[in-house]
Amino acid sequence: MDEALKTFDIKRSLSMKSCPYDNAVAEATFKIIKTEFVKGKNFEDLTEVGQ
């Protein structure tokens, strides 16, 4: 993993240890996407997801 990050010049984003709120916005966003858009639907491939 570290090698891939160096290859693409990506810096890690680390938060405080045991902080339950550091990723709350991202988690809430993905929950909305999963429950409102994806749940109960079947996609044959990735091109159907993007339509």
Rank of each mutant, 00 (worst) to 15 (best):
D45V: 09
K34D: 02
E48S: 14
K41D: 03
K6A: 12
A4G: 07
K39M: 11
K6P: 01
V25T: 07
F37N: 10
C19P: 02
S15F: 05
I32F: 07
K41L: 04
T47F: 13
E36W: 06
E3T: 12
K34W: 01
T35E: 12
A4C: 07
K39Y: 09
E3F: 11
A26T: 07
I33F: 06
D22L: 02
V49S: 11
K31S: 13
T47N: 14
A28L: 06
V25P: 02
T7F: 11
F30H: 13
K41C: 02
A26H: 07
L14H: 05
K17S: 01
E3R: 14
A26G: 14
T35F: 06
D45N: 15
T7S: 14
T29F: 07
I32R: 03
P20V: 01
K31A: 11
K17T: 05
D45P: 03
F8I: 13
K11M: 00
E27S: 09
S15V: 06
F8W: 15
S15M: 04
F8L: 09
L5M: 14
A24Q: 13
V49G: 05
A28Q: 08
K34N: 11
D45R: 13
A26C: 06
D22Q: 12
K6Y: 08
A4Q: 12
V25N: 03
K11Q: 09
E36R: 14
D2L: 09
G50C: 13
K34M: 05
G40T: 04
D45E: 08
V38K: 01
V38H: 01
S13P: 00
E27G: 08
T29A: 07
K17M: 05
N23G: 05
E36P: 00
K34S: 12
D45W: 05
Y21R: 03
V25W: 01
L14K: 05
K31L: 10
K17G: 00
E48T: 13
S18W: 03
R12M: 05
I33D: 06
C19A: 12
R12S: 03
S13D: 11
E3P: 03
T29I: 12
F37E: 10
G40F: 01
L14M: 13
K41E: 05
E36L: 09
N42K: 15
E44H: 08
S13N: 06
L5D: 07
M1L: 15
A4I: 06
D9P: 00
I10V: 11
K6S: 14
I32N: 10
T47K: 15
I33R: 04
N42T: 15
G40R: 02
M1N: 14
A24W: 03
N42G: 04
K17A: 04
D22N: 07
S18A: 10
A24L: 10
F37K: 11
